[in-house]
Write a protein that binds this DNA or RNA. Structure first.
Length: 627
DNA sequence: GTACAAGCTAGGGAGAACTT
DNA sequence: AAGTTCTCCCTAGCTTGTAC
């Protein structure tokens, strides 16, 4: 039996894992520490992991009278098991319990130390964080037991969260009556608080077993299982004997557990494990701990090949696909879905988009997300299948996007903006937005570029004639090659360089680190109003580990919108309108596209053209002279 | 009012596919 | 063979809804 224990960290109380081979099959057990053991040192935790492992496998394996070889990467634990000596209090308590457990069952233990890298699978098991491992609060359970109980089995629980002596778990665990509730026939007094993505399966299995259960489920009419419970989405069907509406999640979930912001975050059930199995393919059952460990690491690291925003953006399309897939009840894991079925899913997304009168974005995103998740699980992408291709083509041809107007700032708009908000007595926040408007217009910056501009003296260079800004990375520069953006002194109130200088003085920015590893922060910062006027919010500087960030896009866009409205500028001016406006003005003045492309850091001329808005007058003038 | 997440649109680039 | 258009994945901008 291989065992390991993991200590606590900020987001995880720590846990234990154990695995062994039973009848030629690898079986694993795991769990999360409760508060008491979470505070123990590593050796008593390791001993507790051994004890939990024995208790977990005792039922299925029948350990009485056997000799068990325990593989552990903790030398102290191995010595304590082999020599029977323990000094520290916690060690003694746990070792004593372990000893008696073995004596009562005539089990003989032999511990063997293995290096940590030979114990990676147990290590992995001990570190699994199960996002669905919620326990219902005492008061809720008591109330429901009184109303509909007593119950005889908890169908979805863990060693930590079970509410009844008999329970089914996702892995072997001490006292668990079985692993995977769906492999059993359910009786007439069940208690079920399943992960929400399993609800459809739970309802169908309950129907097949003619089970009777108290089921906790969210009020969630858009989910696929809701029609199963109700007719017309409103009236519960006849087999529902009673309904009780509980309070908010924080009242239902036992104290001391984090409550998710939105129930949607509960749906990613064991995605990591599915992916690891898919990566190992046919080797999954036979892989040694090194291979398993590498698969674990790869599956965690591979998402990093995408930008953080993209990872976040693909999550919902992927879980929508998994929900759809679960409802189809196909064989194998989601990664075994045949490409034609994926194509039909994309087609269903096309049909739904048409019904909802949205553009082709959903179909495109779904296709891209499925491509990423399949390749991340080391599977061929199914998105090249003819049905997938056809679904994307239908979406591109027939789905009409909702119009989105995005104008261009003119030079006059910029001048009026600065005149209205950037006068001599301007507040720090108004001065900051005037500076951004001028800098983004003259430098053809996106909002995300502006947010990267640092005030560091080496990265924001000011001279008598001009300024140079360093942009370390951008949308078109994912590999951090960086680019310098020159800005000339233009004179007048809207001069970007003069505005930067005024802002630096007004905000009392620090422009050079005073110690190694200090981060002086960006130019565009959150500002707070105090009794004595505005000042930069929070800390003046950070460190390279905990840098100071710019304001969020929403904050910036909100301010810009309000300030434009106050200046009576057109309401189609957004933050990108500054980039479009600067480039369009440069074109109007006759500057060549190559120069504008370099200044705006575009990589192709068609994109420069796309961002060039032209006045009507020159074209009219031309046609007037044709005859 | 601020902050965050979700869900939409569309910008952007690499390389395949097609035309001339 | 060279030039161009197309395809498709990846990334960001923007609006809206919601919680604090």
């Amino acid at each position: 039996m291989h065992c390991d224990a993991a200590g606590k960290n900020k987001s995880f109380p720590g846990g234990w894992g154990a695995w062994t081979v039973l009848n030629g099959q690898v079986v694993s057990a795991r769990g999360t520490w409760d508060g008491r053991i979470s505070s123990f040192g590593s050796t008593p935790q390791e001993l507790q992991a051994v004890l939990n492992g024995l208790r977990s496998f005792q039922g299925p394996a029948g350990l009485e009278g056997q000799t068990i070889r325990v593989m552990t990467d903790n030398l102290n634990a191995a010595n304590i098991i082999n020599k029977g000596s323990a000094k520290a209090d916690n060690c003694y308590v746990v070792a004593y319990e372990l000893l008696w457990y073995c004596v009562e069952r005539n089990i003989r233990l032999e511990a063997q130390w293995v290096p940590r890298d030979k114990n990676q699978f147990a290590d992995y098991l001990s570190k699994i964080q199960d996002p669905d491992d919620w326990a219902v609060s005492d008061s809720t359970f008591t109330a429901l037991s009184k109303q509909w109980g007593p119950f005889d089995i908890d169908l979805f629980a863990s060693h930590r969260t079970h509410r009844l002596p008999a329970y089914y778990a996702t892995h072997f665990a001490p006292g668990a009556a079985g692993v995977d509730a769906f492999r059993f026939r359910w009786g007439r007094a069940c208690w079920a608080y399943p992960p929400f993505n399993l609800l459809l399966r739970v309802l169908k299995h309950a129907q097949a077993c003619r089970a009777r259960m108290c089921l906790l489920a969210p009020v969630w009419p858009t989910r696929d299982w809701w029609p199963f419970l109700t007719s017309d989405g409103a009236v519960f069907k006849g087999f529902v004997h009673g309904v009780r509406v509980l309070g908010k999640p924080r009242d239902v979930i036992a104290a001391g557990q984090p409550v998710p912001r939105r129930a949607d975050s509960w749906v990613m059930y064991d995605e990591a494990r599915l992916r690891q199995v898919a990566i190992l393919g046919g080797l999954a059952a036979r892989a040694d701990p090194v291979l398993s460990g590498l698969a674990v690491e790869f599956s965690a690291a591979v998402d990093g090949k995408l930008a953080v925003g993209t990872q976040r953006q693909y999550r919902e399309p992927w879980s929508a696909f998994t929900r759809w897939w679960e409802a189809r009840r196909l064989d194998g894991s989601i990664y075994d879905t045949p490409p034609n079925v994926v194509g039909l899913y994309l087609f269903s997304a096309y049909v739904a988009s048409a019904e909802d009168s949205v553009g082709g974005g959903r179909v495109r995103q779904a296709s891209a997300a499925i491509h990423h998740y399949f390749t991340a699980a080391a599977r061929d992408s199914p998105t090249g299948h003819p049905i997938c291709v056809a679904a994307r083509e239908l979406a591109a041809r027939y789905l009409v996007p909702q119009a989105r107007e995005r104008g261009a700032f003119s030079a006059d708009n910029v001048a009026r903006f600065v005149a209205a908000h950037g006068g001599p007595g301007a507040s720090l926040i108004d001065l900051m937005y005037c500076t951004c408007v001028s800098v983004m217009f003259h430098g053809f910056l996106r909002w995300s570029d502006m947010a990267e501009v640092s005030v560091h003296a080496d990265l924001l260079v000011l001279t008598d004639t001009h300024a140079e800004l360093f942009i370390p990375r951008s949308k078109t520069d994912q590999l951090w090659q960086g680019a310098w953006v020159p800005l000339a002194r233009t004179g007048g109130p809207a001069c970007p360089v003069a505005l930067i200088e005024r802002l630096l003085a007004a905000g009392a920015y620090q422009r050079s680190p005073s110690f190694d590893g200090e981060d002086v922060g960006p130019l565009l910062r959150a500002v707070t109003a105090t009794r004595s006027g505005h000042r930069l919010q929070q800390l003046m500087t950070g460190t390279t580990q905990a840098p100071v960030f710019s304001v969020t896009y929403n904050t910036f866009a909100g301010h810009l919108r309000r300030m434009c409205a106050a200046t009576a500028l057109p309401d189609n001016l957004k933050s990108h309108s500054l980039r479009i406006g600067g480039n369009s003005r440069a074109e109007e003045l006759g500057f060549p596209a190559e120069l504008r492309m370099r200044h705006g850091r575009w990589r192709s001329l068609p994109m420069v053209e796309h961002y060039t808005r032209r006045e009507l007058a020159p074209a009219l003038e031309m046609t007037r002279h044709l005859v």
